[in-house]
Structures are given as C-alpha cells and as structure tokens.
Design a protein around this nucleic acid. Structure first.
Lengths: 207, 207
DNA sequence: GCATTTCGATACAAATATGTATTGAGTCGG
DNA sequence: CCGACTCAATACATATTTGTATCGAAATGC
C-alpha cells in the first residue's frame, strides 16, 4: 500500500472520465459535429485507441457526457437549496437570488447546454431523455420556490411550474446575451429583474 | 415579351436564393457542421456546381443566410409594430401580446437562430456582426414599447433596454421549451405571463 | 448569325474522419 | 511464477466531404 511499482495503469473509469473531460472542452469549443475523435483525445493526452475502446460511438459519448453534466448540476442545485434554506430569516428575494447565483453561468456550460438542447430537438429519441432530466431540474427549482413560501409568502403561490420554467428560460436567454455582449448585460441582471417583478406583483395580489 | 423560347435560364440571384432555401432547411435540420453541400443542393434540386459557383465558402453562405433571415425578421417586426399602433384604443397588454405574436415561433426558425447564436459565440468576428443585428431587433422592440407608453402608460418607463432584452430572452427560452415539450408549455404562455407580471407591477408603482 | 461570356453540371483529386485490426504493455487469478 | 485477459496505442482500409478543373448549354453583344 505504501508504494506501488512506479506507475500503475489507470482504471477504465478514469480513462472514461478523461475522455469525457476532453469531449466537454471540444463540444463546447467546436460543437458536436465540429469535434473529431482526434480533437477530443489530444486535449487530454490520449489516443483514439482509448476513445474507441471506451465508447462505442460518438452518440454514446455524448449521452454519457450529458448525464454527467446533469448529475453535477443536480447535486449542485440541491446543495445550494439546502444551504440557502439552512440560514433562517432570509427573505424571498435573498433566497431566490442566492439560489439563482448557484446556477452555472459560464461559457462552456452554456455552449454545452445548447448543444444538448439542439441535439434533443433534432433527435426524438433524445428528446424524452432530455426532457426528463430537465424535469428534474425544474422540480428542484419548484421545490425551492415552495420552500420559500414558508419563509416569505409574498411570492405567488399558484403556477409554480410555470414560474420555474420562466426562471429557466430567462436564465438561458440571459446567459446567451451576457456571453455575447458582456459589457451590455451583466451576469445575473435579467434574472434579478425578473425576481423583482415577481415579488412586486405578489406584493399587490396573490392569486 | 409574350413568349420566351421555352425555358429561360434563371438569373444568378435566383439560383443564390434557391441555395439559401436549401441551406435554411439543412442547417435547421442538421446544423451547420452537420450539413453538407450535397445535402443542401439536393433539397432544391441543384448540383454542387451551382453551390460552388454561387458561394465561395460555407461561411459565406452562412453569413448570407443570416442576413436574409434578419432582414425578413426586421421588416416583419416593423410591419407588426406599425399595424398594431395603427389601431387606436388598444391597451398595453393587447399591444404587447399582438406584437409578440408576430415574432416567429416555429421550429426551423428557432433552430436557425440557435445555430447563428452558437456560431457567433464561437467566432468573435461574427459576434459583433450578430450583436449589431440583434441590436436592431432590440431597438425595434424598445421603440414599440416606447410607443405604447403614449397609449397606456402603465408599463414601466425606465429600463427599456433591459425590458426588451428580457422579452427576447423569455421568447427564446420559451420557444425552446415549447418545441421540446409541446404538451407541457403552450406557444406564448411564458411571454404572456411575463407581460402580466410587468403590467401588474407597473400598476402598483412606476419607478 | 457568330463569337464571347456566364453559369451550372459532371468528373477528378486531395484531405479528413471513422471504424477495425493488430500489437504490446500491464494486471489478475491460479 | 505463469497464463489469460484487459486496455490503450499504432497501423490500415473505407467512406465522406470538399475544392478544382473541365465541359456543355444558354444568353448577350457585335
């Protein structure tokens, strides 16, 4: 246990992860169709042999990467929710903005998300898979919103699914505009604005 | 003038348009990198000869297509604005919803828009071009919003650029979700919801 | 009516990507 | 310690795609 014979061979899972790392970079930078095996492998110092040995096809790799991305996002959001709820006395806007801030907002993440989305739109088989995973994310957001109601009931009580979808939509669109024109639209600007809108409405009437 | 010798040869511009038609279909269905010359040409019954004779490169074709799409969108929006403003006595929500309804909401259009956006994010040279064109669209929306203020001043007066961007963001995200899960989210649902939010807020206080 | 020019189709050549087969190093079980 | 097995690297063959070159038809100008 103290010392293995120099370099031990990496496990299959480790190699897979490295390929996935390369694929993430490549797909973000050049898109799904624009990325080649060579491109993906070069980034992580592996050969196409490792690639073809680890994944049967490009689609399989793509699906595996998507699942990894979603799993990480899921745990990230759940963690953020628990964390934000743990600190008592926080108002709805505080909570919402903190929660939203925990959502990824970087270039590669957006580009990947877009690739997955486009792929899903074009391949019915992936569409249901994608929608199901997105449903989990929506459920987490809905859950967080529902939790807020116990702390601060100003926010609208009905139509939670729609609100969750609206938040997701604004986040996506906002991220795109922010990446395209960073000097024009700041990171969480539009989402914060939306939250203000929702809270202001709820302040007047809750239907 | 009465009768030309059987079939006359189509002009260069006509051929270009047909190639663009094919490219629109192909790019929407398979994406930019996923589309081949053969694929594009087959759809409109032309040969690769016509393709290479009309466009120097795939990028040039892509740019040309983007400009055509934007020009059509621009005139469509301007027309819708003028039309909506021409009928007097319309309230802000009526106007907004009518205006928004004139914005394209079909599958191919979304897929294309996404392709252009991704390309712009990945190619700085295209980014400014894209941002400039998107700025025109935003300006039209802002102009329409400003016009509404004269009819119905309930809507917030300040932060028009931000509101225009929010509308655009919601539209994009909403369209994606609507295309992915048509049974879950209806066509203009999220945007209508947003408009309600904005108007309700403005009803309470105008800052 | 003839010559020139333009345009689109076909043929050809080069480059690139993918998948398979083979080989050699490293690991595990007996 | 030896044999069976796994995995990744290299080499190879095939299939796509693109760009160029060539050819023929059609329109225009003299």
């Amino acid at each position: 246990m103290s010392r293995r014979p120099a370099r031990t061979r990496p496990t299959r899972a480790q190699t897979r992860e490295r390929i996935l790392d390369g694929a993430l970079e490549a797909f973000a930078e050049r898109g799904f169709h624009g990325s080649t095996q060579e491109d993906i492998c070069e980034r992580v110092g592996l050969s196409r042999g490792a690639y073809n040995s680890s994944f049967r096809s490009k689609d399989e790799l793509f699906f595996a990467l998507y699942d990894r991305v979603i799993e990480r996002l899921q745990s990230r959001l759940e963690e953020a929710t628990a964390c934000a709820l743990s600190m008592p006395g926080s108002t709805a806007d505080n909570f919402l903005k903190a929660f939203i801030a925990s959502y990824p907002f970087d270039r590669d993440w957006y580009l990947l998300q877009a690739e997955f989305g486009l792929y899903a739109l074009r391949h019915p088989a992936m569409a249901s898979h994608y929608a199901e995973r997105q449903g989990r994310i929506l459920a987490i957001i809905e859950g967080a919103l529902a939790d807020i109601l116990r702390e601060d009931s100003r926010i609208v009580a009905r139509g939670l699914p729609r609100i969750a979808r609206l938040i997701l939509a604004v986040h996506e669109g906002s991220m795109f505009q922010g990446l395209l024109e960073p000097h024009e639209v700041a990171s969480g600007e539009l989402l914060d604005f939306l939250v203000d809108l929702m809270l202001a409405r709820a302040a007047t009437r809750v239907d």
